[in-house]
Nucleic acid binder design. Sequence first.
DNA 1: GAATTTTTTGCAACTATGTTGCTATTTTGG
DNA 2: CCAAAATAGCAACATAGTTGCAAAAAATTC
Lengths: 150, 150
Amino acid sequence: MPRVAASTEKKITALLKRQALSVTESRKRILQYFLDQPGALSHGDIEKKVGTTFDRVTIYRTLQTFVDRGLIHTIPSADNAVRYALCKDECGDGHHRHEHIHFVCQQCHHTFCLDEVVTPVLKLPKGYSPRQVEVLVQGKCKDCTETAKK
Amino acid sequence: MPRVAASTEKKITALLKRQALSVTESRKRILQYFLDQPGALSHGDIEKKVGTTFDRVTIYRTLQTFVDRGLIHTIPSADNAVRYALCKDECGDGHHRHEHIHFVCQQCHHTFCLDEVVTPVLKLPKGYSPRQVEVLVQGKCKDCTETAKK
DNA sequence: GAATTTTTTGCAACTATGTTGCTATTTTGG
DNA sequence: CCAAAATAGCAACATAGTTGCAAAAAATTC
Ligand SMILES: [Mn+2]
Ligand SMILES: [Mn+2]
Ligand SMILES: [Zn+2]
Ligand SMILES: [Zn+2]
């Protein structure tokens, strides 16, 4: 029995093919990693996970390719460590459309997409033309809040 | 006549003394740079400006000290380049309180504090405890919009 | 399914960014 | 002006990110 269910394998391959990407080991493994866990991942996280199997440069290039093709999006941070998360809506080649906000847990240091929370509409001073709004909330995440109660 | 007006010099010294900081050349120059321009600055910006006069390490430590003392605050980014801007409200030793949003111009690549725009109150899913909300708006800034009209 | 073309990978070399320990220098307060 | 405290510069290091190029792998064509 394979470590990764055949159905997941199929799903991953389909995801890559949909974006007209060659299906390679590194792309499959990195995409798998994103699917296997709920949060966002930094380049460093991925390197720790698969860095012995694949070259650092390959990871950089894979992430860039995924961003370009709309498979993942970047999440800004205040600590010089941009994170990446899967795009759930219909992002495509060259264009991202995200309306959700991001949550950074100050306790477990995980970053989550809160897909159900829509970015607010803001009234900006005259002259400023908004194109994209990013909201980054810091605090304590669901898991960490629940654990604290026990 | 000194290059920097004596009044500015006084102001800078006062700012440093208020936070119980030693008044040194590097701190004065870096604080001066922040006061001289409207936007936010990255470590790299500052290094380009004063990097021949002061050591890189000094700049890192100065920025960290300023953040710790509530003189400047960090602005998250999506490009692995955290920026810093002066605190206008009453931030102090160890605690920052900012309610304003930040604007990143995709044309001139400057980052601005929009002090007049208050961060929105968000309804989060059950379990998430917010502590700090950061809003980062990308688009075209005032100057770039006006220049385009001509 | 083998050959050819195209794409991706790994490696090396490099630049940039950030950190730490230590000593010399500067600043402070008396 | 002096002694104590704080800061700056340097060196050495660690981590992060980029580029060119040849080898390997994947896709395409036959
Ligand atoms: Mn997201
Ligand atoms: Mn600000
Ligand atoms: Zn958490
Ligand atoms: Zn602009």
